[in-house]
Write a protein that binds this DNA or RNA. Structure first.
Lengths: 120, 120
DNA sequence: TATGATACTGACAAAAAAGTAAGTATGGAA
DNA sequence: TTCCATACTTACTTTTTTGTCAGTATCATA
């Protein structure tokens, strides 16, 4: 979570995300959980925190919150808070989030088609 | 490099790459360097190890080799060895590698379009 | 006989990402 | 008055990825 601003690692990442659209896109959707979150929101339109968590098999509270927060900060998802107890918070894609649809669909197809060819 | 086969981390990754095309695709092109390597090979057709390295600003020998090896193992690049001294080794995309073109192009466009909207 | 060019290797260290476990706040229902 | 459900927090540990640095092999050429 804490990034060392001038580690070589960080310098390299910044260089590439600033100079390459693909690297930038990857920085936004990369990692273990973000694409799964985006996919579920793409299908289900709007989901409560707890509903999303149920779908994300294996995820921990910490990852849930931290990835949702990153996605929100990046403007890909909206966080809708209902003032009630117990709390109810829903998540949905923003327009920007929706604009990733083509990429996600293509990636899904490619994966489905080639999973069997590549044995990792 | 060494993965603990039954860490939760690894279990989660396996679960998602096996059950989700997108996650699988991400496992193949994710990380700091792979997409850059693929992009350069997509543009330049065929490149020597040293030529590729020059383009990959900031990369170390270790990362070069290890990422090239992974890409080769996954069947995305061909490694062409010329029997001569000093050594000459060229890398090019396979057909499978080329089939990622649409995804990479879309990702590039999306990144270029949205880089300014998202300030990280 | 030493040097140079190229494509690597390997042991180790730092950084980043992911996971664990135990909390907190709220107000209505039992 | 204690308990419950939900959406988080927080401090800490483990795992994974990335980077550093100093090698190695080959043979033609100087």
């Amino acid at each position: 979570m804490e990034r060392k601003a001038n580690s070589t690692n960080s310098i390299n990442e910044v260089y590439w995300t600033e100079n390459c659209g693909i690297a930038f896109t990857l920085s936004v959707i990369g990692g273990r959980w973000k694409i799964s979150i985006l996919s579920f929101l793409l299908n289900d339109k709007k989901l409560r925190y707890s509903e999303l968590k149920k779908r994300l098999v294996g995820i921990s509270e910490r990852m849930m919150i931290s990835k949702l927060k990153e996605l929100e900060l990046d403007g890909l998802v909206n966080r809708i808070v209902h003032q009630q107890v117990p709390p109810k918070v829903e998540y949905e894609l923003t327009e920007l989030g929706h604009s990733l649809k083509d990429i996600l669909v293509l990636m899904d197809k490619w994966g489905e088609n080639n999973m069997m060819k590549i044995e990792e």
